[in-house]
């Protein structure tokens, strides 16, 4: 997933960003809301992680403004405001989930996946496609009964394709899901990761639609 992460506490932001990247997501971390607005104008995101207390404004106001503009990207609020009323206000402003600091990083990952699945209309975290069994929550893949290890980037490509299961996903979307701003993207990176996934999971799982992109078969 391509994630916009808005957080002004540097140590926390670095740890969260690293954890998300390690899980195979591309993370654009900004400290200010104006930078978040600029990033959102330039890039399409699968998920926004939003801190409420940032130096140039209140996160809920920014979120309300984006929702008023018609932005439908899922948003998870990360905040130290722990009261029920804060949570209700956050959800009413358009947040999809609300996580109170401090939180476990794995809990954050699980919420990110859950929100993303809901966004794409999928409720399950487990997929069975032919001989391939994928547990997205546990980051486990079993092919013909044998567990297979995937790298973070490979997970990123697979997860993006699974979220849009049945749809053709362009190379650009996959690149966006893998690389944040400033990261150098090799021209054939997507093809390389798709090729590695086919070797590990079988050649029938991911289909190539020439000139359009890639597609995961519907089980």
């Amino acid at each position: 997933m391509r994630i916009l992460f808005i957080e002004d506490t540097v140590p926390l932001a670095e740890a969260v960003r690293d954890h998300l990247v390690a899980d195979g997501h591309a993370v654009d971390w900004v400290v200010l809301l104006k930078d978040a607005s600029a990033a959102y104008a330039a890039q399409s995101y699968d998920l926004i992680l939003l801190d409420l207390h940032v130096p140039d404004g209140f996160g809920l106001d920014w979120l309300s403004a984006r929702r008023a503009e018609g932005v439908k990207t899922p948003v998870i609020i990360l905040t130290a405001r722990d009261q029920i009323s804060d949570r209700i206000r956050g959800l009413n402003a358009g947040a999809d989930d609300y996580l109170v600091k401090p939180f476990d990083l794995d809990e954050l990952l699980a919420r990110c996946h859950a929100v993303s699945r809901r966004r794409h209309g999928h409720l399950s975290v487990q997929w069975e496609i032919g001989d391939v069994l994928i547990d997205e929550g546990a980051h486990q893949v079993v092919v013909e009964g044998q567990a297979v290890d995937l790298t973070a980037r490979e997970w990123g490509v697979l997860s993006t394709l699974l979220q849009r299961r049945g749809q053709v996903v362009s190379k650009r979307v996959l690149e966006d899901a893998l690389y944040a701003f400033g990261e150098e993207v090799e021209s054939n990176a997507v093809e390389v990761y798709v090729s590695r996934l086919r070797k590990k999971l079988g050649h029938t799982l991911i289909r190539t639609q020439r000139g359009l992109g890639y597609q995961v078969a519907v089980s």
Partner: peptide, 16 residues
């Protein structure tokens, strides 16, 4: 906010 955020940072660092 002031009490939870530093703890959140430290916990995240440890978990990383």
């Amino acid at each position: 906010h002031e009490l939870r955020t530093p703890v959140a940072s430290q916990l995240a660092k440890i978990q990383r």
